[in-house]
């Protein structure tokens, strides 16, 4: 066998600001999964946020400055992986548009080509078919918008969840409909956001699952916060926590009652 094929790919983990601040478990779960898939994982300290709050608020200047820092920090890796469809989508699909016609255009394109969301990286790039985790109980899965529509993430998490022993997947009605988070949307238009997440909560409860999973922490915090405000006895976790077998700690927001 040739030397290169034996070499473990070097992956830079873009942990995302929400995971860094609110849910480190997702970061550790991601590292574990990536290592199981045969990667060498590094976590550069110079990362902050992907820049979406600025980009989606029309503040291009700050978005570009943040993007430059991310690119500089991560371009040395073979792959850049993020446990979030929304942040990975920003890095992969939107960074190139930020630098259109700029001297950084090619650099941004080269960087973006190496970016993947965690689930799709594990399945589509590393060819992972099963995980070694176990989870007794039923889960339902919400498809977060950016991952689904920008990065075509749908089957990958379901395939891996199917390999978790003891886990029963109960499909969620309207799983592809937005949960109402939308980044700054949920605080700029709280009443509308609330109406949307209320609809989502109805479907989550109707699924009958004990645990709700998704691949984006923003959406998860939104749905967890709503379910808990309603007193619903449903745990909420990032899908990576279950796949990595790191789901014995408290769920998001304490979860359950």
């Amino acid at each position: 066998m040739r030397q290169e094929t034996l070499k473990r790919p070097r992956v830079g983990l873009f942990v995302t600001c929400l995971v860094d601040l609110f849910r480190p478990t997702v970061g550790f779960a991601s590292v574990k999964l990536l290592e199981e898939a045969g990667c060498e994982v590094e976590v550069p300290m110079a990362q902050t946020c992907c820049g979406q709050p600025a980009y989606n608020s029309g503040d291009r200047e700050d978005a570009i400055a943040i993007a430059r820092n991310t690119i500089e920090t991560f371009e040395e890796f073979d792959y850049i992986v993020a446990p979030s469809g929304s942040c990975a989508g920003m890095l992969k699909k939107h960074y190139p548009t930020l630098f259109k016609g700029d001297p950084w255009e090619e650099r941004a394109a080269a960087f973006s080509a190496k970016v993947h969301e965690l689930m799709s990286f594990l399945v589509d790039v590393m060819g992972m078919e099963a995980v070694s985790a176990a989870h007794e109980g039923s889960v339902t899965y919400h498809d977060s918008c950016s991952g689904l529509r920008e990065l075509n993430i749908r089957e990958q998490p379901r395939r891996l969840l199917g390999s978790v022993s003891g886990l029963k997947l109960k499909e969620l009605k309207d799983a592809d409909v937005c949960c109402g988070f939308g980044g700054t949307f949920c605080v700029k238009y709280p009443d509308i956001s609330n109406k949307i997440v209320e609809e989502k909560a109805v479907n989550i409860k109707a699924s009958g699952a004990e645990t709700l999973l998704a691949g984006d922490l923003g959406c998860l915090m939104n749905m967890a916060g709503k379910l808990q405000r309603q007193g619903a006895d449903i745990k909420v976790r990032h899908v990576a926590e279950v796949l990595a077998g790191m789901d014995d700690g408290p769920a998001i927001g304490g979860g359950g009652r």
């Binding site: 550790f28 976590v43 949920c186 605080v187 709280p190 939104n222 808990q228 405000r229 304490g254």
Partner: peptide, 29 residues
């Protein structure tokens, strides 16, 4: 112990309609 906030100053837009999950512990980094 609740691991969430029912109200948080400056996060009223969020906590008006939903609880805010508290950070787990120290940051990941």
């Amino acid at each position: 112990a609740q691991r969430r906030f029912r109200y948080l100053p400056f996060a009223g837009g969020w906590t008006k309609h939903r609880d805010l999950p508290a950070p787990e512990s120290r940051t990941f980094l």
